[in-house]
Design a protein around this nucleic acid. Sequence first.
DNA 1: AGCACGTTCACGTGGCGTGAGGGTCC
DNA 2: AGGACCCTCACGCCACGTGAACGTGC
Lengths: 130, 130
Amino acid sequence: MAKPDELFAEDQGVFMISVAARLAGMHPQTLRIYETKGLVSPKRTRGNTRLYSEADLERLRLIQRLTTELGLNLAGVEVVLRLEDELRRAHERLERLDRQRREEIQNVHKQYRRDLVLYQAPRPVPTRQH
Amino acid sequence: MAKPDELFAEDQGVFMISVAARLAGMHPQTLRIYETKGLVSPKRTRGNTRLYSEADLERLRLIQRLTTELGLNLAGVEVVLRLEDELRRAHERLERLDRQRREEIQNVHKQYRRDLVLYQAPRPVPTRQH
DNA sequence: AGCACGTTCACGTGGCGTGAGGGTCC
DNA sequence: AGGACCCTCACGCCACGTGAACGTGC
């Protein structure tokens, strides 16, 4: 079966280069090249062995799609990764701004409703318990 | 100086391939390749001569930057152009949403102020001039 | 008639993946 | 002691830019 250290590594959700390469469908040497170009940055053990996390693997699979399916070179991959990150953050900002918009409108409504009650019903205002 | 048809073309803001190539710092043949790959789509004269608009030139200069400065291949250029377009539209949506947000809050304020005036001052409401 | 246009083909270079060789760590 | 890791070097392939050849339109 699999070797003890491989099993151990996979149990941790962390993979050494041979396993990561197999899971990403790549040559181990290719992964080393990607690291020198700054496309992935796996951790290292004390013995200097690369350890690929799940996030690293996800990134590898994305790169795999860009290079083999779409035919990008590494320079293109770098730019695309950056742009996709920007785009993701832009969408997050959209989400946040929309939520903020709704909340602010609600708050304005609440504020005025409180004021309206004061004018409409000039009886003793219920003070909050002290 | 320049040949009559070149001058004519430039006056129109439209350039034949040799002029466009010079302005973009590229080989004319390169521009033809880009067209077959769908990266630029210049108009044609009845005689089938390519005519590059200012927008085409701007696009060419962007491609020039991506390929020579950043080292992308054409597949990468295609993806990057698409992503930059998406990003631009996302920013436009952000602008629009933010403006809408301010407007809506203003409208709520206006609405309540009108109501408050009715409660506060039960004299004839000053109607706006008709 | 000539010049710049059109298309197609061929060559050269460079990027990238793959493998081999040799050293090191469990 | 063996196996997988580390790194560096070398080969091969393919994409792309550039030029040449040849035909066509103004």
